[in-house]
Simulated scan of single mutants.
Amino acid sequence: MTHTTPYPIGTLGQPWGPAEIDAWRATQVKRRSYADEVLAAIEPLKASYDVETYGDVEYAGERYAFYALRTRAWRDDLPVMVVTGGVHGYETSGVHGALQFLREHGNDYVGHANVLVVPCVSPWAYERIHRWNFDAIDPNRNFREGSPAAESAALVRLLAPLGDKVLMHIDLHETTDTDESEFRPALSARDGKDYEPGEVPDGFYLVDDADKPQPAFQKAVIEAVAKVTHIAPADANGEIIGSPEVAHGVIEYALKSLGLCAGITPARYCTTTEVYPDSPRATPKECNDAQVAAVRASIDYALAHPAG
Score class of each variant (00 low, 15 high):
Pro6Glu: 11
Ile9Glu: 08
Ile9Lys: 13
Thr11Gly: 02
Gly13Asp: 10
Trp16His: 06
Gly17Tyr: 14
Pro18Ser: 12
Ile21Ser: 09
Trp24Cys: 05
Arg25Ile: 09
Arg25Gly: 07
Arg25Ala: 05
Gln28Ala: 13
Arg31Ile: 12
Ser33Met: 12
Tyr34Lys: 07
Tyr34Asp: 04
Ala35Ser: 11
Ala35Asp: 10
Glu37Ile: 00
Ala40Tyr: 03
Ala41Asn: 01
Ala41Leu: 09
Glu43Pro: 00
Pro44Thr: 13
Leu45Gly: 03
Lys46Gly: 09
Ala47Lys: 12
Ala47Leu: 14
Ala47Val: 08
Ser48Pro: 02
Val51Tyr: 12
Thr53His: 11
Thr53Gln: 14
Tyr54Gly: 03
Tyr59Glu: 06
Tyr64Asn: 03
Tyr64Gln: 01
Phe66Ser: 10
Tyr67Thr: 09
Ala68Arg: 03
Arg70Met: 15
Arg72Met: 06
Asp77Thr: 15
Asp77Met: 11
Asp77Lys: 12
Pro79Leu: 10
Pro79Ile: 03
Pro79Asp: 03
Met81Arg: 04
Met81Ile: 12
Met81Lys: 06
Val83Cys: 11
Thr84Val: 07
Gly86Glu: 01
Gly86Lys: 09
Gly86Leu: 01
His88Arg: 09
His88Ile: 00
His88Leu: 13
Gly89Asp: 02
Tyr90Pro: 04
Tyr90His: 13
Tyr90Trp: 15
Glu91Leu: 04
Glu91His: 00
Glu91Ile: 00
Thr92Cys: 00
Gly94Leu: 11
Val95Lys: 00
His96Leu: 06
His96Pro: 14
Ala98Asn: 10
Gln100Tyr: 02
Gln100Trp: 07
Gln100Ile: 07
Leu102Tyr: 05
Glu104Gln: 12
Glu104Phe: 04
His105Lys: 13
His105Tyr: 11
Gly106Leu: 01
Asp108Thr: 12
Asp108Phe: 14
Tyr109Cys: 05
Val110Lys: 13
Gly111Lys: 08
Asn114Lys: 10
Leu116Gly: 10
Val117Gln: 05
Cys120Val: 04
Val121Leu: 07
Val121Tyr: 02
Ser122Cys: 02
Pro123Lys: 04
Trp124Ala: 05
Trp124Cys: 02
Ala125Gly: 09
Glu127Phe: 02
Glu127Thr: 08
Arg128Met: 07
Arg128Ala: 06
His130Thr: 14
Arg131Cys: 02
Arg131Tyr: 07
Trp132Met: 12
Trp132Asp: 08
Phe134His: 15
Asp135Ser: 11
Asp135Cys: 14
